[in-house]
Amino acid sequence: MTERTLTKGGSSSPATASRRRGGRGRPPTVPDHRGGNGVPRRSGPPFRARLRRDWQLLLMTLPAIGLLAVFHYTPTLGNIIAFQDYNPWDGIWGSPWVGFAHFERLFTDPRFWNAASNTLIIAAVQLVFFFPIPIALAILLDSVLSPRLRMVLQSIVYMPHFFSWVLVVTLFQQILGGAGLFSQILRQNGYAPLDVMTDPDAFLFVVTSQMIWKDAGWGTIIFLAALAAVNQNLYESAAVDGAGRWRRMWHITLPGLRPVIILLLILKIGDILNVGFEQFYLQRDAFGSSVSEVLDTYIYHQTLVTGNFSAGAVAGLVKGVVGLILIILANKLAHKMGEHGVYRRA
């Protein structure tokens, strides 16, 4: 179902048929090498004919497009309250304009810079300590020969991805928290209990462990697919030529994963401000905001706790704009390195 075709309505009257043919009468198209995403230039079939042909398809897109328009695009426009002193009684139309006053206040707020630096620190730690794990895990899983055992292991490691953050944080608390299993065993053996779940020094360790527990398994999917696509003959020839298993991994497996690794690395850089939200919101009180406040929780506590909507919107807008710039830069980088990126070059 790639290209709409000309032959429709074989049973319709000659008049309709010719009109429809007119509607679909595009010149034969050049084969599209961009994977069916690009659309050939049309010589302009009449709008009404195309509407008559495609109204059902348009109608089908309506619910989703409508939902995105209302719940994505409208609130995006709503960001203009960042330039207002918004209050709910006067609304967007009645609230006074204040220019960049909120931006100035934001950039002089030490808590904002604390949240920004925490976000960057967490992102960096994720990059170094989380990112390589799915790669290693995928190589390990891929080396399991028995399909049944492999299936069982995959099922197990994918599963935590589907647990909510509340659940994951609760499980960690039950095992590692001050009233959790670990402390319980320590206490019963005469040692002092150890509560890592409230220790600010342990914060990065705890949140990274949680991420690994929850999502490292799920992260293997894309690497496993890349591994399955590696030409098996390469391994055989290398083995015949005397390459051992580590040399094969270094010279065949890792180069096979290289494009995926680069792509995901670049995407990660574009997504650096989105370190996650619920995980930090849930543990903010336990660890203290000096280590656990990230940009999203800052926005929440700025606004919905204090009622200062414009201050929160400003922080959200700054984060969104910086994030957008990062994504665009990351994609530019991806294209430079010959990868696809999240969107293709237009």
Partner: peptide
């Protein structure tokens, strides 16, 4: 879209 405008 941002948390605050969406909330509003």
């Amino acid at each position: 879209p941002g948390m605050i405008p969406l909330y509003l």
